[in-house]
């Protein structure tokens, strides 16, 4: 019975369902299961081999878009072209690195009739890894001590204050554990070559890692929140399996985060629980995570709720979720005709 539901055309990025996956395919699965609307999915890709491009039961049509480094005007021009053809209702960007551009373009997109539901620029900036210490102080949330460095020798001074090991982090992605200065130098060089400077050196908190994904309405209310414990972790530190848990402390911390920051949009909190049972906030990812479909399976369709908020529809908070729901990721080889690869590579559309 789908006749009375409106049809939304939704642009989604993050179609790279690889070993360090973007959230796009999982977000789309949630959207496809939405109870309150039907959707036509427009994939927005950066590379020709992002698997989502070729998943035709997931993505209806894909357009390549320019990398964030090309600037917002180039992106805007491409989105105008796509909108002219597809009449987009909503765009859901799923990469940290592209959010800056989409937040800047938010009002211009809205004037074209394209809705988004993104964090405000100040929220996006203050939760940045580089600013995590100040963020913790401002909102009274425990965070590991960290310092942004622009020269690897600056890390030598940190040895006085921090114990080994130290976590070496890129400004957008990647984290490597270093047990001595040689390892730290190698990690610094590897990550800075890929993601640029600064590099964040963070105190390592021994404990168990938990993650919470959720959705804030921008008014301080928790619309959705599902905590997860990783059960199977890849060599890149990504969850390949996880389970929803009933952790009242993690949920209380999430409520506090949303209430105090008035967070707007989807998010993922990366938390570490130390041996004393204290939670440390390691990172705030300003978008839905790749494991967002677990939240859908546990009873909170966060992608659907995000679209409802973007469209200005009422969106009541979810009331609970199923504990003990697991996700087990898998790899699947699709057979693709070279004509499709040729088309996306040459025309930027498929």
């Amino acid at each position: 019975m789908t006749t009375n539901k409106p049809l939304f055309t939704i642009g989604v990025t993050g179609l790279n369902a690889i070993d360090s996956p973007g959230p796009g395919v999982a977000v789309i699965r949630g959207l496809r299961e939405a109870a309150s609307f039907n959707c036509r999915i427009i994939g927005l890709s950066y590379e020709s081999l992002e698997p989502g491009i070729y998943m035709h039961d997931i993505v209806d049509k894909t357009y390549q878009i320019p990398y964030p480094s090309a600037g917002t005007e180039v992106l805007m021009s491409r989105l105008e072209y796509i909108h002219e053809k597809e009449k987009l209702d909503v765009i859901i960007p799923n990469f940290d690195a592209e959010l800056y551009s989409f937040i800047k373009l938010e009002s211009r997109l809205l004037s074209m009739g394209i809705h988004t539901f993104l964090p405000r620029m100040d929220q996006f900036e203050e939760r940045h890894k580089v600013n995590l210490n100040d963020f913790g102080k401002k909102y009274q949330i425990k965070v590991p001590r960290s310092k942004a460095i622009y020269n690897v020798n600056e890390a030598q001074q940190l040895e006085k204050d921090y114990d080994w090991p130290l976590v070496v982090k890129g400004k957008y992605y990647d984290a490597i554990l270093a047990y001595n200065f040689d390892q730290l130098r190698a990690a610094y060089n590897k990550i800075s070559a890929k993601w640029g400077l600064p590099i964040i050196i963070q105190e390592f908190i021994h404990g168990t890692e938990y993650n919470v994904t959720g959705l804030g309405d921008g008014q301080g209310n928790t619309i959705a929140a599902v905590p997860m414990r990783k059960q199977y972790i890849t060599d890149k530190g990504k969850a390949w399996g996880g389970i929803s848990i009933a952790d009242s402390q993690a949920l209380a911390l999430t409520d506090h985060f949303l209430k105090s920051t008035q967070w707007r949009g989807g998010f993922e909190l990366e938390l570490m629980k130390d041996k004393n049972g204290d939670y440390y906030l390691l990172e705030i990812n300003p978008r839905m995570p790749a494991w967002i479909y677990l939240a859908v399976g546990a009873g909170q369709n966060i992608p659907e709720a995000l679209v409802r908020l973007a469209m200005g529809w009422p969106c009541p908070a979810f009331n609970g979720y199923k504990v003990g729901k697991m996700f087990v990721r898998y790899a699947w080889d699709m057979i693709v005709d070279i004509a499709e690869f040729e088309q996306i590579s040459t025309t930027g559309e498929l």
């Binding site: 997860m228 414990r229 389970i243 929803s244 848990i245 009933a246 009242s248 504990v323 003990g324």
Partner: peptide, 18 residues
């Protein structure tokens, strides 16, 4: 009290996921 134990001896702690 929240620990779940199945007849097969499978024990699940919903707070930690273990």
């Amino acid at each position: 009290s929240n620990i779940a134990v199945s007849d097969n001896g499978f024990v699940f702690n919903p707070a930690s996921g273990e």
